[in-house]
Design a protein around this nucleic acid. Structure first.
Length: 583
RNA sequence: GCACCCGUAGCUCAACUGGACAGAGCAUCGGUCUUCGGAACCGAGGGUUGGGGGUUCGAAUCCCUCCGGGUGUACCA
């Protein structure tokens, strides 16, 4: 049980005793915005006072008097218009810290209701170079998968590759007309990427004004795509030949990011089911013919969803519906989560609605939307030209290079072995990649963000580097104290206010994970890391560990360092960021 | 046209979904220290939360209305 739940329970008891609405009082408990006011606060008295026709402060006073004094909470204090300020007792903090220190999983408890989540993320279009726009879905989805697994839920990760779309028409056209045979032999991935960019240069107009009059190259590409979908032998053969190269390309990026999937199932995987889906929808009168196409209609003001186009081809809505059903049947999930750009909001709204009408009721469907990556001009980054400056690989290389130039100490610290060149390279990799991930994850996912090299590569302030550094400092102290592999159990003594404060932040670990999972928001975790790192800094500054006044205090403080390190490591790993013993 | 989203410090972003004086990081200015790891710490300045109205004990958050931006919208996926 998380701290806040324990507090809610006690507030509920108090409310029950007074005949106040229990749920309302319990729900009003929240962490204090300002630590000066306490650890937690309960805000129900104001609303309740109105309802009961009593002064809110009186209501708060009554509640305060009824809170069980069982050694967990200090006597609550009434403040302002009727806020109830709640503080844990020192004993409770120490007790729970000791419990956490003893527990191999930091006292996380198994969830009451175990969920099984299918998480669909990353899903790049293959055969196009990956760029920074793909970073968000990939990193977010990976972090969410790790988060739910850490919380004890079952997770199935899926990569819904765009492996059947128009970009293959471009590749097929390029292969047939512009291929550099020698280049293809030595480095097929590179040559395919070149072909993609090259062919697009022959398009008469930009993608934005697509569909206008005669564009011979584009039309030819479309025909190649159509032939592929109709099962043309030659095109299918080439598709099968290209796919491994394309996969190899994106897998390189995943390896570097440390991202894995349980299943890679692209659009092509669902191809065989599409006709059946369309037929079922039509038969059930969910979809109806219109202007030669098969569509699903919604309200007056909403555009219809296309299930089958006039030319007989199916759309991505159809593919997604086939996927919903396939996933539902195969995994019996409680939730299906789509980590996709918010520009797809209506698409998913429609797909979810059609799925509901279709009778798919088992899983809850979530569109975990995120904002676009914008260029420095505030306009969305275009994928079409795959400029080196915005390719994923270019970004990662630059981040690692930059991390390598930061002034690492020449030796690992007093009395320790110097850092080897190999170790330094690993540090640069972990710091560089970590910086890029953290920059993305620390932002509220719903807002657009302006792509900025300096911000992505920043290593001070609220960044991964700062957290990694805090971790390395903890570990260094522990090594010097002779405990490289953790500390023996110790009694926690909370003397200084800085120790108590750090203690409370540490105890909020489970709560931070729950809260992040609630709305699929990893930035809750980075905010927590920032709080923790700051609390540790203040502790570190004011509470000598190796030079502690006595042995009991030293053991207690070492235990606090060890616990801080474990929590930092756990949360960073949920975010897909590696920690380092030395840096 | 219709629908959805956004506008917060010089810049980039938070604000636990209606709670206490709107907080951080950069940047700027000033300070700390014979470093339990200086990739550190402390402090200062900086705001009518785009404007106006409303609901509420209480609004960045909810409603209305302007202004400014974005995205999506019947045959790309």
């Amino acid at each position: 049980m998380t701290l806040i739940q324990k507090i809610r329970d006690r507030m509920a008891l108090a409310a029950d005793q007074l005949g106040f609405p229990v749920a309302e009082v319990a729900a009003s408990v929240r962490p204090c915005g300002d630590p000066a006011h306490g650890h937690y606060q309960a805000n129900a008295a104001m609303a309740l006072g109105k309802k009961l026709g009593k002064p809110p402060r009186d209501v708060a006073t009554q509640l305060a008097a009824s809170v069980p004094q069982d050694g967990f909470l200090q006597a609550p204090e009434v403040a302002g218009p009727g806020f109830l300020n709640l503080r844990l007792t020192d004993d409770a903090i120490a007790f729970h810290l000791e419990k956490m220190a003893k527990s191999p999983d930091l006292a996380l408890e198994q969830p009451e209701k175990k969920r099984r989540l299918v998480i669909d993320f990353s899903s790049p279009n293959v055969a196009k170079p990956m760029h920074v726009g793909h970073l968000r879905s990939t990193i977010l989805g990976d972090a969410l998968a790790r988060l739910f697994r850490t919380l004890g839920h079952e997770v199935v990760t899926l990569n819904h590759l765009g492996d059947w779309g128009a970009q293959f028409g471009i590749l097929l056209y390029g292969y047939k007309n512009l291929l550099d045979q020698a280049a293809f032999k030595t480095d097929p991935v590179k040559e395919l990427a070149r072909l993609y960019v090259e062919v697009r240069k022959h398009f008469a107009v930009d993608e934005e004004e697509e569909g206008e009059a005669g564009d011979p190259v584009r039309d030819a590409c479309r025909q190649e795509t159509a032939k592929l979908h109709q099962g043309d032998v030659e095109n299918l053969r080439l598709w099968r030949e290209f796919m491994p190269f394309c996969l190899e390309d994106i897998n390189r990026a995943y390896r570097r990011l440390g991202v894995t999937f349980d299943h890679i199932r692209g659009e092509s995987f669902y191809q065989p089911f599409l006709a059946e889906v369309a037929a079922e929808l039509e038969q059930a009168k969910i979809a109806e013919p219109s202007q030669g196409a098969l569509v699903v209609l919604f309200g007056e003001n909403e555009a219809p969803a296309l299930i089958r186009k006039r030319d007989g081809a199916f759309t991505y809505a159809t593919t997604d519906l086939a996927a919903v059903r396939h996933r539902t049947d195969n995994f019996q999930p409680t939730d299906i989560v789509y980590v996709v750009d918010s520009r797809q909001a209506q698409h998913f709204k429609q797909v979810f609605e059609i799925a509901r009408r279709w009778g798919i009721q088992g899983p809850r469907l979530h569109h975990v939307a995120f904002g676009s990556v914008l260029g420095s001009d505030g306009k969305p980054i275009k994928t079409r030209d795959g400029k080196a400056s915005t390719t994923l690989e270019g970004l990662l290389d630059e981040a690692v290079r930059l991390a390598g130039t930061m002034h690492a100490p020449p030796e690992g610290g007093e009395g320790e072995k110097p850092i080897t060149p190999e170790e330094a390279a690993q540090v640069a990799e972990a710091v560089g990649i970590g910086a890029v991930k953290y920059a993305d994850l620390s932002q509220n996912r719903t807002t657009d963000y302006k792509f900025n090299w300096d911000k992505m590569l920043a290593m001070d302030g609220n960044t991964a580097t700062y957290m990694q550094y805090a971790y390395a400092r903890c570990r260094s102290i522990l090594r010097k104290a002779g405990h490289p592999d953790g500390v023996p159990e110790a009694k926690i003594i909370l003397g200084a206010p800085e120790e108590k404060f750090l203690g409370v932040v540490l105890l909020r670990y489970a709560e931070a994970l729950e809260s992040a999972a609630e709305d699929f928001r990893p930035n809750v975790l980075t905010a927590y890391l920032w709080d923790l790192a700051k609390a540790y800094s203040v502790f570190f500054q004011n509470c000598p560990v190796l030079r502690a006044p006595d042995e009991v205090t030293q053991h207690s403080r070492l235990a606090m360092c060890a616990l801080t390190a474990r929590v930092l490591k756990s949360v960073l790993e949920i975010l897909g960021i590696r920690v380092l013993e030395r840096m």
